[in-house]
Structure formats: structure tokens, C-alpha cells
């Protein structure tokens, strides 16, 4: 390759679409209760907030080959977001405090829904709100719109009506918002767990019982950075969410715990940067992964992971990556305590 020749453009563009080497089936159904409603061709999604609305990376990768796109967090009304600076690199990770900047659900649908409807890749709209009514309002607006394949609830938002406590840290609040959204739509519903809790299992069970089709785990871990020259918090909003490789062991632990507590599919998110990370998450009990921060350094990574996972399956005589799911979980008799949680095998 000569210098400056594009490495690939677009990366992973395969004439004729999906190539199925060795008969490996990488498809995955993220809403088994609604068969076919959220069936992905492959288990590599892109995480909300790192991929905009799916168009931004269109010049450098073939977004249509992704398993699914989780779009930028969307709220009922437009939000201007947090004051800058909003991002900073940390050891093996980064902090972000975007503050849910988005044009609001109406503008999102107006700008992108028609485009999404023409795509082969499912678009899952990430939804955020400050009250149950907010979430329901957004989801009602999404319901039945061509081009919307599912909803991912970001419940790591302060519940303004409940003193600002995040929905995600309280089983009752998490269940309440999930149930309300469930009543408002037949769209496949993914709920994103927060790692900023003492025991995530009870919350996961409450969300599953409230009608979520699947879970994504995890959202960013709360953190901060200091601007030493100015002797104050570096980020404009003081706190930010940690993502990247530094988050991966935490996400892996959450997936491992939640996989033993619920029966619905789990989509792992947090520090996926290599095939090895994907395999870790699958073995810990996830059926699919979302790639987030790693896209910034390597936009071609998600599609390369699809190819590498397929090659791994061929090499290990697997007909599907699903044969790996949960294979690292303890045998039943060794299951860790789920004290405080109703446990149904």
C-alpha cells in the first residue's frame, strides 16, 4: 500500500453483502418475546453517544454492515448540553460529560427517520428523560415510526421528581420507568444498566420483570478530573462518565452477575476494543456487544470484530457465537449469592 492511499474505503464493504464463511450464523435476537422484532445479523452494535445518528461515520465505514446502531441519546425537548470542556483522556479511558445535547425527538425523527427506514441496519433510539412522563412522551412519538427498530432506555438520568436520584440506582424507579415505557410501545425495549450501584442484580431483575426485552450493561462509571493549573474540576460539568478499556473489568463483572440473575438477553458495553474483549463478554453471559469509545480511535473496529468473530467461530468449529454465551458462568451449585433478590432458575 502506498502512503496516503486509503486503508479501505469504506472499510468492510463486501460486494453482495454478508459473506457467510463456513456456515457460521452470527445472528442474534435481542427481543425473544417478540420474535423477529429485533433480530440482528451480527452481534456487534455501536454504542449510544459514540456514533451520532449513524451518518457521521458514513464516509469511512459501511454502517449498513453493523449489527445495529444505538443513536445519540434523545429527549422530548431539545437540550443544549453541558458547558465545555466535555471530554478528557484518562489512563486507558476517557471521561465525557456531554449532557445529553440533542435536538429533541421531533427534530431527530424529522432529520433521520426516513433515512433510517431505507437502511438494512436496525436503528435503536437511545431515550433519556427527567421524569417517567418524559420517557413515555419520547417513546410514544417513536412508536410505529418506520426506521425505528427499538428503544434503548438511558435510565442513568436524574429523576427530577424524586429529588434527582437516578432511575438506574433504585429498583423501584427503574422498574416504574421500564413498565411505563413498556405500556407505551410495542417496540423492542432495551434498558441500559448503570454500574454506579451497590448491587446491580436486584435492579436488573426489577427491570426484566417490568417488561424489558433485553438489557445493555453498562453505562459509564461516574468520575472526574482536576485542572491543576486552575485548581478546579476540569470538565465544565464537574463530573463525567468513564469509558474505554478502564471500564471493561467493571462491565464484565456486571454482565457476569446479571447473566446469573435474569433470563433476558444482555448486550455488553464498556471497553470493547478487541476480539478478546468480545469473547470475554460472550463467555460472561452477553449475547452481543456494543462498541463505543474504541470507535474514536478506530472507526473500522466494529466491522472488523464481526469478521474476526466469524473467523474465530470457524476456527473453533462453532456454528454460532451463541455457543459461547455464558460458558464462563459458574455451574449452578456455585452460583454466587443473590441475597435480597427473588431468584428463579
Amino acid at each position: 500500500m502506498t502512503a496516503s492511499q486509503p486503508i479501505a474505503e469504506p472499510i468492510g464493504a463486501v460486494p453482495g453483502g454478508e459473506v457467510d464463511l463456513g456456515g457460521v450464523n452470527l445472528s442474534v435476537d435481542l427481543a425473544p418475546a417478540r420474535p423477529g422484532a429485533l433480530s440482528l445479523r451480527n452481534p456487534v452494535l455501536v454504542a449510544s453517544g459514540t456514533f451520532g445518528y449513524g451518518l457521521e461515520y458514513g464516509e469511512v465505514i459501511d454502517v449498513q454492515r453493523l449489527g445495529a446502531i444505538c443513536c445519540k441519546g434523545t429527549t422530548l425537548k431539545a437540550r443544549a448540553g453541558n458547558p465545555p470542556p466535555r471530554v478528557t483522556e484518562t489512563p486507558a479511558g476517557m471521561l465525557n460529560s456531554i449532557g445529553l445535547q440533542n435536538p429533541g425527538v421531533e427534530a431527530v425523527l424529522e432529520r433521520y427517520a426516513e433515512l433510517w427506514a431505507g437502511w438494512n441496519v436496525p436503528v435503536i433510539v437511545n431515550v433519556a428523560g427527567e421524569s417517567i412522563e418524559d420517557y413515555v412522551g419520547v417513546v410514544r412519538r417513536l412508536d410505529g415510526v418506520p426506521g425505528i427498530s427499538g428503544v434503548e432506555l438511558n435510565i442513568s438520568c436524574p429523576n427530577v421528581g424524586a429529588g434527582g436520584l437516578q432511575f438506574a440506582v433504585d429498583p423501584e424507579a427503574a422498574a416504574a420507568v421500564t413498565a411505563a415505557v413498556r405500556r407505551a410501545t410495542e417496540l423492542p425495549l432495551m434498558v441500559k444498566l448503570s454500574p454506579n450501584v451497590a448491587d446491580v442484580r436486584g435492579i436488573a431483575v426489577a427491570i426484566a420483570d417490568a417488561g424489558a426485552d433485553c438489557l445493555s450493561a453498562v453505562n459509564t462509571l461516574s468520575g472526574m478530573a482536576i485542572d491543576q493549573r486552575r485548581r478546579r474540576a476540569f470538565l465544565g460539568a464537574t463530573y463525567g462518565g468513564l469509558s474505554g478499556p478502564a471500564l471493561k473489568p467493571v462491565a464484565l463483572r456486571v454482565v457476569y452477575e446479571v447473566a446469573q440473575a435474569v433470563k433476558i438477553p444482555i448486550v455488553a458495553v464498556g471497553g470493547v476494543g478487541s476480539l478478546s474483549d468480545v469473547l470475554d463478554f460472550l463467555m460472561a453471559g452477553a449475547v452481543a456487544v456494543q462498541v463505543g469509545t474504541a470507535i474514536f480511535a478506530d472507526p473500522g473496529l466494529p466491522l472488523r470484530l464481526v469478521d474476526e468473530l466469524r473467523a474465530y467461530c470457524v476456527e473453533h468449529d462453532l456454528t454460532s457465537h451463541r455457543e459461547l454465551v455464558g460458558s464462563a458462568l459458574p455451574q449452578r451449585r456455585e452460583r454466587p449469592s443473590v441475597k435480597g433478590v427473588e431468584y428463579r432458575p
Partner: peptide
Amino acid sequence: EQNMGCAVGACLGCVVIGVKGP
């Protein structure tokens, strides 16, 4: 200048405040 994430407009990390918002 601003700290930057994706550089393609996806992450909204690198904003400065303009007269009409970020």
C-alpha cells in the same frame, strides 16, 4: 481548540459555546 473525541461530529465532545449554542 477543544479536547476532541470522534472528530466527525458524532460525539459532541469538542464544542465551544457559540452565540447560537454549542
